[in-house]
Amino acid sequence: MITYTYESALKHVEDNFNGQFAALTLGDSGAALILDGSPNDKYGFHYIKMATGSKWSDMCIAKPSEEESGRNDEYRFRPAPAPGGVVQAVPFYLEAMEKTGWTHDELDVFMPHQTSRRAITKFIDLAEEAIEQTFKTKFIFNLQKYGNTASTTYFVALRESILNGNIQPDQNMMFASVASGLQIGMSSYTMDDLPLRYRNYMTKGAIA
């Protein structure tokens, strides 16, 4: 369905002010996770907070196009409030770090929803200003490879980052959501031995 959205947008977008511009990066994917109890307090999720700024709920809507046959989606995107969403995410990041009890140096990996490089870069600029230090090297980007795969972006990026060695056991991570709705969320997580187990399975060919 998402690829249809991009195909539909291709017919209409002439410049980056077009309402369907954001749809050009959408890609299809699937992801699945198994969750169970953490072996101890060191590993797993420490803090999860999600909040909805529904004042901006009409900012980004995906629905069947009125102009197309009904098969394609129109992906309406109003760019003006988008930086607003990113601005709103910064205090959530600061709160998540404080509630988790991490200093900014203790965060190893920042995993954002893979929306647009411009939005993520804007968030990095604002967050660096707030914490008065650089942390752009901690960000995971895979937008250029898979596009915005919507609900699955974190886990498509997580799997690949594990396989290419960018995520290691004992690393502290932050999953960050800035999604339409406006859904803002931060989840702090310490990786257990999953990267070793996963890479081991892959080496043995246990997973195709």
Binding site: M1, A51, T52, G53, S54, K55, S57, D58, C60, I61, A62, K63, P64, D73, Q88, A150, A179, S180, G181, L182, Q183, I184
Partner: peptide, 22 residues
């Protein structure tokens, strides 16, 4: 309107003015 995104709950929360501005 067969909206797939965002959650319909966000429109409902906004209409009801339930802490909608973060």
């Amino acid at each position: 309107e067969h909206i797939s995104e965002p959650a319909m709950a966000t429109f409902i929360q906004n209409e009801l003015c339930i802490n909608n501005d973060l």
